[in-house]
Design a binder for these strands. Structure first.
Lengths: 136, 136
DNA sequence: CAGGATCCCATAGGATACTG
DNA sequence: CAGTATCCTATGGGATCCTG
């Protein structure tokens, strides 16, 4: 680790260009399976996806479960630690919404709607939804 | 650009392992000069620092001024666009503070004290301070 | 379907020396 | 003092193919 600074710690855990996108897919697009992550617009490649899923698991941001039943499909779930990243993701989104101009489209920013109305209650609404799924 | 998603936009602007650390140095350690950035604990090297300063300037997150007077020392200042990143930086810090355990030391987390007492007023207090410096 | 293996290229980044 | 330049290595990452 480069330093004991909290900002640096966070950057070392998820400060690459892919980890937060995977968590976004889980949080806002309800993706849970390998091939669902592959189909995102940003087109992550298989070796990077596999690598990041391992990293996220090691950092305890996601957990793996064998799909209940006979198939060996793996389902990924968010941990509480990952759900706690929601404010980080939303603040990045809000910043971009303010400064990106026409580079981002309203449809792509749909997940900001609730927090733009009211940060606190919007945040809570999304967190509750994620926590419910988490328990399933 | 990989996509028109606001999260992705932010990640492409400052989602590397150094940019936010430089902004942190400016925001919380009042660093403004090249050699001050070099002396940070994370030990950035000269080529990376020069590169990131150019990037941050191109993205309009910092501005350069020749130091008033005869010397050709360059002073870097935060733009409003960079000051708007304060919530992002603080949320990352708060998350790490919660999840890093003993890997981060209280002294390193001093810049979280105000927001931990009260997010809204703490945020405003820091923003005001940065805006004042910005005007100098 | 999940993900490992391989190949190959681009970028990141450390170390050091040099320039205006 | 603020970079540039150079060299070299490590990592990131795209493409493709392979395996249990």
């Amino acid at each position: 680790m480069r330093s004991a600074c909290p900002l640096n710690f966070g950057l070392e855990q998820f400060g690459d260009k892919w980890s937060l996108l995977i968590l976004r897919d889980m949080m806002f697009f309800d993706k849970r399976y390998y091939n669902e992550f592959l189909s995102s617009e940003e087109a992550i490649s298989t070796n990077i996806l596999a690598d990041r899923l391992l990293m996220l698991e090691k950092e305890e941001l996601i957990t793996k479960q064998k799909d209940t039943g006979h198939k060996q499909r793996i389902r990924y779930s968010l941990t509480e630690k990952a759900i706690d990243l929601l404010p980080v993701i939303l603040e990045i989104g809000l910043w971009s919404d303010k400064h990106a101009g026409k580079l981002i489209t309203p449809e792509k920013a749909f997940f900001l709607v609730e927090v733009k109305k009211d940060r606190e209650t919007g945040m809570k609404k999304i967190t509750d939804k994620l926590r419910n799924d988490h328990i399933l």
